Simulated assay, not measured.
Amino acid sequence: MYVCPAGQELNYRTTGRTGFQQYASDPEQCKSCPFLNECKQSKNHRRVVTRHIWEDSKDGVRNNRLNQGLWMTWVSRQSEPPPLAAISWPSTAPAAFW
């Protein structure tokens, strides 16, 4: 659920074929809104927020990418040499492979 600057809830309206969801405000409440000039200027006094259905997942990935603890873990793993078992050939390789 999304909220406009005046505190009005933007209700779910529809999902398009490309996966974008639309959330819209009530135009009757927006007509008398003090934030109308700052929020959105439209002829029908309606604020519409469009967001993709995967946007929540993408936000989570962005937050993990910017997390300092995860970044330091990645940096420390880059400086360590890989274990010998990770770079050796598997013992179950076919004979034609050797």
Rank of each mutant, 00 (worst) to 15 (best):
M72G: 00
N67G: 06
L36G: 05
Y12Q: 03
K31E: 12
L70A: 09
P90E: 09
K40P: 01
G60C: 12
I53F: 08
P81I: 04
E38M: 05
D56M: 00
A86P: 09
N64P: 04
P82M: 09
N63I: 07
G69W: 06
C33Y: 00
G19N: 02
K31F: 11
A95N: 04
A95R: 01
Y12E: 00
A6C: 10
A85D: 14
S32H: 10
Q21K: 15
E28S: 08
A95H: 01
A95Y: 00
K58G: 02
A6N: 07
F97Y: 10
Y2L: 15
R65H: 14
A85I: 13
M1N: 11
R65A: 13
H52T: 03
L70V: 08
F35E: 08
N67F: 07
A85L: 11
N64S: 15
Y2Q: 12
C33T: 07
F35I: 05
R62E: 11
E9K: 11
Q8V: 12
G60D: 13
W71E: 09
G69F: 12
T73Y: 06
P27Y: 02
A86N: 13
G16N: 03
S42H: 01
I53A: 06
K40S: 12
R65M: 13
N44I: 02
H52P: 02
A93I: 04
R47Y: 02
A95W: 02
I53E: 04
L36A: 15
S32W: 05
Q78V: 12
K40N: 10
P90S: 07
G69H: 14
F20E: 04
T18W: 05
